[in-house]
Design a protein around this nucleic acid. Structure first.
Lengths: 197, 197
DNA sequence: GTCTATAACCTGATAGAC
DNA sequence: GTCTATCAGGTTATAGAC
């Protein structure tokens, strides 16, 4: 395999990553990917065999990229407060660079629900709760955090950080303003959501 | 126009509403709609001329259905607390019956951003803020709610209610549990998000 | 490895009989 | 109004020359 091979394959993969994120599987044309990569359709099939296979490669890469952002939550070195700070800061920073990624993943999980089973070696929630409640016993008692409420809280946290990116155009439709994505964690918000900050 | 005409047109429109919500514009085949409506492709074109026109009809209906849920926020009869209760209860009840609707709308706003301009006669946010702050001056002062923070708070509220439906499969991918959508407003949540309840 | 030409198939849209 | 048959255009995939 020569250097030029890798270059072409990479170019195609990069172009595919962009176009699939932008248009979704159904909206993407192999022709568009080829054009963006500066080659032709035949080479896409030469390197990746089919649209499905190319998409699968892109999806797996992007999915693990996104889901890996959730792992520091279990780190035993961090306090609960640090985790929340860390998660919001890191996650939102990441989302700013990949604003279409969550939508892309969610879209594909809807289109092919069978992915869900085999995507990630799913985490056992009971074990997850146990680990977290051991690490942060004091806070869990203080706020009476049960498995149920933990799941709700985590869903809300994910919602607050992810939704502004997904729903950017949604708010734009509603308001006659130049909507900046509201992802700055201001001092005021600290007062409003004491549990979160 | 006979009664049977209306019936057929309605059947097609209903079927289209379902399939478009399920698969999105690109993923939808006219054939599938026809089959679901119990007729054939020719009739779809007879009543709605083109796929685009049929989609447009469905989209407008669904969009106004969703956006109308946001209007009670300005009602002068309700206290701030009542509005929040009302919004969460009504909105989540509505989303339970139309779980794919927000995703559908967001998807289309991404696909055709030019919709945003003409979708709803956009609300002037400055005026909206003024009206609200006059209605709820006490609370706005107590919590020091500025236009910026109001927008953030409302985005977060929308996020918390909408995201569980959009991201249902997202959480399913993460956790090895039978995920019930966590939309119950529990007493515990009241303690956790004092501003919201 | 790369490219052009083309096959094989699918999809939206229409013509025309009933 | 309804249906079958078919067209025209586009899309994935492959064959074959270089």
């Amino acid at each position: 395999m020569k250097a030029s091979d890798i270059q072409t394959e990479d170019k195609i993969f990069e172009a595919a990553t962009e176009v699939f994120q932008e248009k979704g599987y159904d909206g993407t044309r192999m022709h568009d990917i080829a054009q963006k990569a500066g080659t032709n359709k035949a080479l896409l099939h030469y390197y990746f065999r089919s649209k499905d296979a190319l998409f699968e490669a892109v999806f797996q890469k992007l999915a693990s990229k996104l889901f890996s952002k959730f792992t520091p939550i279990l780190s035993p070195e961090l306090s609960l407060e640090e985790k929340l700070h860390f998660f919001f800061r890191e996650h939102i920073e990441f989302l700013k660079e990949n604003p279409r990624l969550p939508f892309f993943i969610i879209n594909e999980l809807n289109r092919k629900p069978e992915r869900i089973q085999r995507l990630i070696r799913n985490i056992d929630f009971k074990l997850f709760y146990k680990t977290l409640s051991e690490q942060h016993g004091k806070e869990f008692e203080k706020y009476d955090i049960t498995p149920d409420s933990l799941l709700q809280i985590m869903t809300s946290i994910a919602a607050i950080s992810i939704f502004p990116f997904i729903g950017k155009n949604f708010s734009k439709s509603l308001w006659r303003i130049s909507t900046k994505i509201s992802t700055n964690i201001s001092k005021k918000e600290k007062n409003l959501h004491p549990i979160l900050f």
